[in-house]
């Protein structure tokens, strides 16, 4: 057995079929992610990338018709969204939601404490929490003024994406799924986001980057690149595949898939 075989599978997706509003979007996705790995899932618009991220997060609008998803050996699909989060799954939203009247600090602390409680750890008070937050803020280049603002309310597109990364940094998930976190970012924001994700990489966690663009992969080198087309993974490879896609576009793969 090779080196890969020794590590346990953190996420195992088998033959996943999912639909939204009666339309089948995912049509048999297979994917295995191991601890320490970074996977990039690429594909044209409408291929099902975001659906995959939302299904893994537990979005109530999506229905799973077939297939299975195991997270550390547990049936992920049977879990409520909050239980997935408490078990260590984090989905950064493509369109983060604004929450009026609730400050970022309060929200983050509520989330951290919900997860700590689940793990049987003591909940953090406001002061203790703030101390821990300072480092994380520095990493994404924010001052504490962002903490007293309502969650994502009046935030620019880039600020919302940074806020997702801040949440990820604070919640320290085992598996982070970033749903097009790179889209709509200027080059500086992209670098900050990529740098943060890179900094949070550890042998015991894993990252799935859902992206339309090659750009972010120049900052975070993926171990694996998968191409999703028409609800299936039609090609997998190393990071060179991303470069090939950047040069040749997606059409050649779609044509290839149709032939196969």
């Amino acid at each position: 057995m090779g080196e890969r075989g020794r590590k346990h599978a953190m996420l195992e997706i088998k033959n996943l079929h999912a639909s939204v509003e009666g339309r089948e979007i995912l049509r048999g996705v297979d994917l295995t992610v191991r601890a320490g790995e970074v996977h990039a899932i690429m594909g044209p618009n409408g291929s099902g990338k975001s659906t995959l991220a939302q299904v893994l997060g537990g979005h109530p609008a999506y229905t799973v018709a077939e297939g299975s998803v195991l997270f550390e050996g547990k049936d992920l699909l049977a879990m409520k969204p909050e239980d997935r989060a408490r078990e260590g799954v984090f989905v950064a939203f493509q369109y983060p939601v604004a929450i009026r009247g609730i400050t970022n600090a309060y929200f983050l602390r509520s989330a951290v404490n919900a997860i700590r409680k689940h793990r049987g750890e003591e909940e953090l008070g406001p002061v203790e929490f703030m101390d821990r937050l300072e480092d994380k803020l520095r990493v994404i280049g924010w001052d504490s003024s962002y903490l007293s603002r309502p969650v994502n309310e009046g935030f620019s597109g880039g600020e919302k994406k940074r806020n997702e990364i801040l949440q990820m940094a604070v919640l320290e998930p085992k598996l982070a799924i970033l749903d097009e976190t790179d889209s709509g970012l200027d080059i500086d924001a992209l670098k900050t986001v990529a740098h943060t994700v890179d900094k949070l990489r550890r042998p015991d966690n894993a990252t799935v980057l859902v992206t339309h663009y090659y750009r972010i992969l120049t900052h975070i080198a993926p171990d694996f690149v998968h191409v999703l087309s028409d609800g299936r993974i039609v090609k997998s490879g190393g990071k060179d595949l991303a470069l090939e896609l950047e040069e040749k576009g997606y059409d050649w793969i779609r044509e290839g898939a149709a032939v196969a």
Binding site: G57, G58, H59, P60, A61, K80, P81, E82, R84, A85, R86, F90, V91, F93, P96, V97, I99, F107, S110, A111, A114, I115, H118, Q167, L171
Partner: peptide, 14 residues
Amino acid sequence: QTALYYLRSRGLSA
């Protein structure tokens, strides 16, 4: 509903 899901996806109960 999306806001509810967003909060739940961060570990808060429904």
